[in-house]
């Protein structure tokens, strides 16, 4: 509980609790012991459930079907993206996202198809973690969440925010319990199956998957914060300078 409060205080910027990374390390990891336990738990879940289901999905369903599902998963994220665009003052992007949602809902079979990209309205992701960063929230430490996986304190709160504002979470899905399961499982299986070999390699062919996952996750999350697509030179290795 104290940890949770600490996290909230961090994001709210109340306490002076910016967590600087130790010298030469990518990110602070004060909760490494707990993180490692949850990482192992998540990995176990991948072995017994997520990986086998994703494997069957990838091998046994037609490519076209997977393509439609991927489109639909992206489509359902658009309202949350539009809200974050607006919160960041990116009204033009917000408008494009709303336009994309309208086009693909109306002439893209409810979001299964993607004619909007052809009309110059490509998928342009955004999320609550980016909104928090733009508002000045510190990145905070590395944290592994049960089921949800690795993230940073800031991006964890970003996801919580996105979940809270997602209109589709207030919508009843057809199919009762099965529908509810699908709502949670489909995006997970979509991502796992599209990155099947890469995730396998990181989780099962590294000496210490926790360290590799931490390094890859943190760098990948930071990449989203690139300003106008420019890379921050500080994020690159300075091999002749050290």
């Amino acid at each position: 509980m104290r940890r949770v409060l600490f996290g909230i205080a961090c994001v709210a910027g109340v306490a002076g609790c910016a967590t600087p990374a130790p010298e030469g390390a990518l990110i602070a990891d004060p909760w490494e012991r707990t993180n490692r336990e949850i990482h192992e738990f998540n990995k176990g879940l991948d072995v017994v459930l997520v990986r086998p289901v994703s494997f069957v999905y990838r091998e046994a369903t037609p490519d076209l079907f997977q393509f439609l599902i991927s489109n639909f998963v992206e489509h359902l994220r658009l309202p949350v993206i539009a809200v974050n665009d607006v919160l960041q003052g990116e009204f033009e992007r917000g408008l494009s996202t709303v336009g994309r949602f309208a086009v693909n809902t109306l002439v893209g079979a409810g979001g299964l198809l993607d004619p909007a990209t052809e009309f110059g309205l490509p998928y342009d992701p955004n999320d609550g973690g980016i909104t928090l960063a733009r508002a000045g929230a510190e990145e905070g430490a590395f944290v592994v969440l049960p089921l949800l996986g690795p993230t940073t304190v800031r991006d964890g709160f970003g996801r919580l925010f996105d979940f809270a504002i997602d209109p589709f979470n207030f919508l009843r899905v057809p199919g009762g319990a099965a529908g509810e399961v699908a709502r949670v499982a489909v995006p997970v299986v979509d991502v796992r199956s599209r990155n099947f070999e890469l995730i396998d390699e990181v989780l099962y062919e590294t000496e210490d998957s926790y360290v590799t996952v931490r390094a890859a996750t943190v760098q990948n999350l930071r990449r989203r914060l690139r300003d106008r697509d420019l890379v921050d030179p500080e994020s690159l290795p300075d091999i002749f300078g050290e």
Binding site: D208, T212, A215, L236, I239
Partner: peptide
């Protein structure tokens, strides 16, 4: 060539994190 960055993930930096963990272990 100094580094390859795949989807924002630098091979050199990731390798440094891995090696640092391996030495520690």
């Amino acid at each position: 060539l100094v580094d390859i960055v795949a989807e924002g993930v630098s091979l050199s930096i990731t390798q440094r994190e891995e090696f640092s963990g391996m030495v520690e272990r």
